[in-house]
Design a protein around this nucleic acid. Sequence first.
DNA 1: GAAGGCTAATTTGCATTCAAAATTCAAAAA
DNA 2: TTTTTGAATTTTGAATGCAAATTAGCCTTC
Lengths: 231, 231
Amino acid sequence: MLHEDVVSQLRNILLEGEVPPGARIPERDLCTRLQISRTPLREALKVLAAEGLVLLLPNRGARAAKLTSKDVHDLFEVCQGLEALAGELACERISDKAIDAVAKAHAEMVKHYKDKNLQQYYVCNRMIHEAIVDAAANPALSSLYESVTARIRRARYVTPMTPPRWAIAVQEHEAILNALQRRDGIGLAHILRAHLRHKREEVTRAGFAEEERNGATQSSRPDAQQGVVIP
Amino acid sequence: MLHEDVVSQLRNILLEGEVPPGARIPERDLCTRLQISRTPLREALKVLAAEGLVLLLPNRGARAAKLTSKDVHDLFEVCQGLEALAGELACERISDKAIDAVAKAHAEMVKHYKDKNLQQYYVCNRMIHEAIVDAAANPALSSLYESVTARIRRARYVTPMTPPRWAIAVQEHEAILNALQRRDGIGLAHILRAHLRHKREEVTRAGFAEEERNGATQSSRPDAQQGVVIP
DNA sequence: GAAGGCTAATTTGCATTCAAAATTCAAAAA
DNA sequence: TTTTTGAATTTTGAATGCAAATTAGCCTTC
């Protein structure tokens, strides 16, 4: 019962960015923080290292994974492929009821868009994408998708959006819902690919700027945040 | 140096099928076999559980993952999506030299086909698929692909092929090489999807038959091989 | 003879311990 | 003042130990 907990707690800590990316994670600190001994903690670290959230250097401890712009770019590409696949499969397998649920989430998302509530917009957005993936009725796909998206969540959902970009995203989501309702798998796959490519371009642009800024201050604070950091 | 070794050794043991799928793995046995203590072994098991090769039941030990036909089917679908993505990206990024390498591997594969050497054919086959994935120049994709294919390797590469199916597979590979040389990403993605779908149909058909046979003998040997087992 | 329950042995999960490697800090030399 | 060297401290990697849970065996009972 403890082990699973430790992994998910640690995962949260890392995804929340409480431990700055690239920063070293002393085992003792986490032990006292999570109130466990080193054995289960180390097991959890190994698991998270396999997931790519933690970097394990032999005899030199664990570091929170630091994603370069290239890493984020790569993960977005993978995410794209997975979502496109999911969209195609979902069109074959999704129930009318599930489509309605997506439509409902979509309507709510549009409402949040009109209210300029980015936070709530993102919540609905994520729900929609996850609903489509789950509608593919492929647990292997779902869990892989979850693990990949987790790694770029901060990049994906914390990047500020410009008003024109936001409008386009909403339009794309209209098309996504439309394709899903028509059960047009090929079309949906194409739209999802384009949708995520746009998002990626946006995020990596923001990422590059951030990375350069960090590069400038890197020498003074060697253990400071490195790589792509989203505010 | 020990930890990584343990993971890959255990991975090999599992992929080779030395531990029957579904069978319980007593920690002590593996400890004596690998000449290590329980701590690093348990860490490795956790990692492999995260990869999906091992099933960890709380307080009830580890079991070699037993893949149902549905699991294999799902993983093939994911693999399809990843290969299609890789094919598309590879066409944009692959070097002429790398294309030549694929062409060379392809030629050798055809030779083994003509010699009816399935073993060597599969070796070249795998090399080609991996070369295409690596040509996508996306490490995240490569490592995900590796982990997914590892789980279905036995299903993918040990299934006996019927002569007509084999002929079709070779034809498809001709088309794959052709699309790659023309750098036709969309086309390659389509061919790869179809290629893997055919393979999947073949494997799952074999899998279902096997699963039913196992089902009949299950009661007499509760810890015997279950799920899809490829001879 | 089969079913159920109880005890003993095994096995798992976690904490602690010990050795080896890395990091830190300070003193000495350039 | 800066660099280098070397011991002390810290931190990691792995083994062992201990408590809790599970499994297996055996006896009783129907």
